[in-house]
Design a protein around this nucleic acid. Structure first.
Lengths: 194, 194
DNA sequence: CGTCTATTTGAATGTACTCAAAAGCGGTGG
DNA sequence: CCACCGCTTTTGAGTACATTCAAATAGACG
């Protein structure tokens, strides 16, 4: 679980004692491809840090269409934060796209941990703050950019993810249909030639 | 500045001493209608809590179109968080829609405040966490709901704001044109009759 | 090689946009 | 009190971007 500790220590400095306490509360768990780390409707039991593998967080709308909210790869925190913080049924599903190993913090121990290691408040404040800034950026882009521009930006900014997930999921993440993304790629290829 | 202290104390418990220290760092400032609390391109100098009035946070895209990212009313925190936390040029403009009084924390004192009153880490963690959950919800809705559904939901969930801002700004917030929103309203009125 | 999943292609459709013009609605001044 | 001004909302026609549905093609894996 060194990688997680290392990540946390980028923002705060844990003492050896705190590190030990934190480690004692963490559990490693491995999911197979296709398994769900958490499911819509359930109350989330843990917050997860990906050690290896990849996941998608998606929402199933009333018409049965899937909408990918986020991808997760190594060193990402995943889970339905709304469910985790208020212990209400989750809106989102978190599914593994590969065999995936996560480090879990149980929700019912999170408050205790914040109490025992107040520095963690800082760590998570910073982490969530960054996630929030990105979410706002995404909202604005979805309004102000065309689907093609959004796709090109995605390839650029999230190159690693782009290479590791199937195209129809990228379409879903971008908020367009897989057919339309295919059309866009065709278009882009044509434009590149001329 | 009691209202802010009161709001903060919903999540944490400040001692009298901490309260005093915090208060000594806060400044009240009033802007006229139309004035900017912060502007795109500038590096944000403070984070703002609205005591009275209302604001819009918007992004100006490459085609010169405005996209409203958020509205602010009493008891909301406003500002370009991306700029505030990394002291980079802001993406967003925050403009007052009325005479607006805010309580400001200077960015260059924020870290010191976190140091002196670690509980504030917790307060802002919780605040940003909630904002993030809402942002994710908005992303999903923009994908899975039609413009009409989004509008009706907005009226329901943000009734107060809906009554206090002009329609063309609501359209911008929803990511549609003012003309199309007008069309939708027409449609909704017709549907209601039959 | 066959099966299953992912991607491509194309035609018809729909949702939302653009542009232009008209109508409504406060305020302000004559 | 009315006329005019600026700003917001409405209306309508034509258009564009993205969707749906159906079918063909390509890729991956046993």
């Amino acid at each position: 679980m060194d990688k997680l500790i290392q990540y946390i220590n980028k923002h705060i400095s844990l003492t050896a004692e705190e590190e030990g306490l934190l480690l004692s509360k963490l559990k490693r768990r491995t999911y197979l491809k296709g398994q769900y780390v958490s499911q819509s409707g359930d109350i989330s039991k843990h917050y997860n840090f990906i050690e290896s593998g990849k996941t998608r967080t998606f929402y199933l709308d009333d018409n049965g269409n899937e909408h990918i909210v986020a991808f997760g790869i190594e060193n990402y925190w995943i889970g339905d934060l709304g469910s985790i913080i208020s212990q209400t049924p989750a809106d989102f599903n978190v599914q593994c796209l590969d065999k995936t190993t996560v480090i879990q913090i149980a929700c019912n121990q999170l408050e205790q941990l914040y109490h025992d290691i107040p520095k963690l408040e800082r760590y998570f404040r910073i982490t969530v703050q960054n996630a929030y800034v990105n979410a706002q950026k995404r909202i604005v882009r979805n309004f102000s950019l065309s689907a093609q521009e959004r796709y090109l930006l995605f390839l650029e900014e999230q190159a690693e993810i782009a290479q590791r997930v199937p195209q129809y999921m990228i379409a879903s993440y971008l908020g367009i249909t897989k057919e339309f993304l295919s059309h866009l790629r065709n278009q882009i290829a044509k434009d590149a030639k001329s």
